[in-house]
Design a protein around this nucleic acid. Structure first.
Lengths: 238, 238
DNA sequence: AGAATAGTGTCTTTCAGACACTATATG
DNA sequence: CATATAGTGTCTGAAAGACACTATTCT
């Protein structure tokens, strides 16, 4: 006993115990006026059999940074590349993983449902779940909390940017964009306000095509190649 | 050779090499119309003798999360507690640290210069450097880049919140706040606009006191106890 | 008095909200 | 034709910008 105490004190430069470090992604899409999140069924302990966020460990041989880790894990677990990916935040603590102190870098990502529907349905262990139905699901770790934080960030960004276009195919109509935005922020917006922002942002091209919509034909738009998203100086609605 | 290849393939569940994980802070303050950042002189390799951001490893025995790590390191290296602390972002890659793949969680923090000036000057190895003079300094790792990212975030937040109050003592005047804001965003603002926001945010109390200012006495304000910062729905200036 | 800073009154500008109106598709 | 959705015209409203004006303090 005494011996151990002395030995510890004699090593002030000891290596700190390195905590577990993982990268997890909250990948959203929108389908039928519902915000969906991608969950995977956990094959290993802890929380075997529970649903959780797709993620895993950095592969220092392969990954050039944590963005690459997030992408690689989404590719491996659900066979898809997100259209949008950004860091959300780090969550850490001694009690969130039974194996010990853990640090998780959470990403927040978007894809168009149309682009990934076939891949997901072919993967047994991955599934889209409506964010508003998550109480019914038994989620691993603090993943429910992380999803709520990601949802809030998505809602916030939707008020001052065109981020939700990444939930749509490359060609889309104003009506579709309006619907996706309304699903995300859970409030109606004015079509006129959206049109003004599309015009002002100058990041969209008119396609030559129009598509049927139940009424008058709708103009198709695309994001200009290489265009960066713009942040507006005012929020919508809120 | 062949044996090694087979062995690798036979261990799909092998432990990944855990990268180095550190927590660094970009602590800003404002003094004499200059934005300053706290740097520490590195005692150990790599980059011995260079200036760098105060930070270090998580202590899984002591820290309840990475926020605690950031605070503890600021306390240890400069003897101070920041008035404001939030996550900035994770920077990672195989080449940013000569020791190998590294992951750094950067924090962004604020203090009032008046509150910490004595501590810093008593610490040999810590010093405030003007952010606009950093080219002259030999900075460790990619710390220059991290400081620039933190500065941008601070500028952005200043446009839609009262975050800069954390660069001031608990009692402060509108004139002081205006000056700090202008230093941060490097642009003049309208005193009237600031007054309107102070009124609208409803997070400040008038003190009973006024202080001299070179002209008419200036009203002292304080942040209401327990008040959360408000995000305005429009940006200033920009 | 004159200079300096604090604080107010008020007009302009910008952009979102509201909503009526026109346009064009379908059955 | 009616209905549904696309898209426009234009008025209102909220909050920032501009800036002149008053108020107070010091020398």
């Amino acid at each position: 006993m005494l011996y151990n105490v002395l030995e510890t004190q004699a090593e002030p430069n000891m290596e700190y115990t390195n905590p577990l470090f993982t990268v997890d992604s909250v990948l959203f899409t929108v389908k039928n006026e519902q915000l969906l999140v991608l969950l995977t069924k956990r094959a290993q302990a802890p929380f075997t059999g529970c649903w959780g966020l797709p993620g895993g460990f950095i592969d220092v041989q392969q990954d050039t940074n944590t963005d690459a880790t997030a992408s690689r894990k989404l590719e491996a677990k659900a066979g898809l590349k997100p259209a949008y990916l950004e860091q959300l935040q780090v969550i850490s603590g001694p009690d969130r993983d039974p194996r010990g102190f853990s640090v998780t870098l959470a990403y927040f990502a978007l894809v168009a449902y149309q682009n990934v529907s076939p891949q997901i349905s072919s993967v047994e262990s991955a599934s889209w779940i409506a964010v508003n139905d998550l109480e019914k699901i038994n989620l691993a770790f603090d993943h429910l909390e992380i999803i709520q934080i990601a949802k809030q960030r998505l809602q916030q960004k939707t008020l001052y940017s065109m981020t939700p276009v990444f939930c749509l195919p490359t060609q889309f109509t104003i009506g579709q964009l309006k619907s996706v935005i309304e699903t995300i922020i859970e409030k109606p917006i004015q079509r006129k306000s959206l049109m003004r922002r599309i015009e002002a942002s100058d990041i969209f091209d008119l396609s030559e095509k129009k598509i049927p919509s139940g009424g008058r034909m709708a103009q198709l738009y695309t994001l200009k190649p290489g265009a960066d998203l713009v942040n507006f100086e005012r929020n919508l609605n809120a």
